[in-house]
Design a protein around this nucleic acid. Structure first.
Lengths: 220, 220
DNA sequence: TAGATTGTTAATCGATTAACAATC
DNA sequence: TAGATTGTTAATCGATTAACAATC
């Protein structure tokens, strides 16, 4: 029930969603039994690592048999807390905000979207994916009534400081941030996950540059 | 000039974009000199790590003085290869695709967007951020003429396999992928960066669940 | 020169892998 | 029982931090 090992490292946690996706695919296909060896071949981790990872939370395997895919999924769900329905709001109903509002499966990821906000008069009042876009000016009242726990920020870089300050003042402590503004610098006690698209693209640029260099030296 | 140390680890590389962003902000503000100590205080890495990181590429610092922000930026640019202009295409002009087309500063990140594709008749021909959306059916001819090096996939999960296979067959070896489909499983020699939004949100869910648990046990 | 700060080596820490006894 | 595969301990590997001599 309770994690066996306290302080499970973030490296392990960050692998759990991948296990989860893979195992639920498997369970969907009707597969029940899976061994760490099989998993390792299909996912590219070592069998040893997989067993270590799962054991951080207490053995759900069975010696001589392996793991049960569906049960494993359920355990990972519990660990990640994705059976929860943390109420959240989304700020910024531009293209990115609309993509996320429409396509992110919040209910399967531990959250539930309860409001979409923007401050542009041309956008306020429009309906996107069933959500009527609300005026950000009314956020205070909304917060008092609904108490969202997390805010998704799909707004321009230069507005993130002001908006996160405002939300923080209301009581929101958790952010999913799509810009590069570092919320943690100002609010070290906030819970933040960043989606650093630019960084990810720069990393890709590096890999390409490396490959090019290799090609050049190969052909010499 | 050439990297001092061969095989710089990916952990280092993944920190470079953060340094880069921070240092270019600094340079923009007119700051020239910066020491590893100052950087460590402002960025939350240790001074030791910063010096180690920069030294993987050969010392651009000066004892007793520190580093020159602008010069450091330039060096990181070279390492990441973001002065390059790798031609790339974007496939999928939905909300996400439009957000990326409009807001990703490709030219500053090592790439240049040369075409936007979709297969929906309602979208083909429309202009988004100056790009006329092209019919994906014409990709072969486009490839022959322009030779894009990388493809950005902003398409539904279930289409990624077919689309990446198709592009791979044409000769594209590098992908920036916004779905969970694992391109590397099928094409191990491809160069791929994934933006796993779902995983990132699940990780946030975990952090929230942890915080809740802590709060509960604190108040007991 | 004295002070500061790098470059670099050595020490520590953490994460991954290997090995194998426990047991289904 | 024999075979398979986990749970777990020990060994290895890599990344981070500490320390300090080199030098601007």
């Amino acid at each position: 029930m309770t994690p066996k090992k306290q302080n499970v490292s973030m490296s392990v946690i960050r692998r759990l969603p991948r296990y989860y996706r893979f195992l639920s695919e498997l369970a969907k296909k009707g597969e029940t039994r899976i061994s760490s060896k099989e998993l390792s071949e299909k996912m590219g981790f070592t069998a040893s690592q997989i067993r270590q990872d799962f054991n951080c939370f207490g053995g759900f395997g069975q010696q001589g048999y392996g793991y049960n895919a569906a049960q494993l999924c359920e355990e990972i769900e519990k660990i990640l807390g994705i059976q929860k329905r943390h109420p959240c709001i989304l700020v910024g109903a531009g293209n990115l905000g609309r993509a996320i509002t429409g396509h992110m499966p919040f209910e399967q990821l531990g959250f539930s979207l309860i409001g979409v906000f923007d401050n542009a008069p041309t956008v306020i009042g429009r309906t996107i994916s069933g959500f009527k876009v609300l005026d950000f000016a009314g956020i205070e009242e909304f917060y008092r009534e609904r108490h969202p726990l997390m805010a998704i920020l799909c707004i321009p870089q230069e507005q993130v400081e002001a908006v996160s300050d405002h939300l923080f003042a209301l009581g929101i402590r958790s952010f999913w941030n799509f810009s590069h503004y570092d919320i943690l610098m100002k609010h070290p006690d906030a819970i933040v996950e960043n989606v650093h698209m630019n960084d990810s693209l720069m990393t890709l640029s590096y890999k390409l540059a490396q490959a090019e260099q290799k090609n050049t030296s190969d052909s010499l």
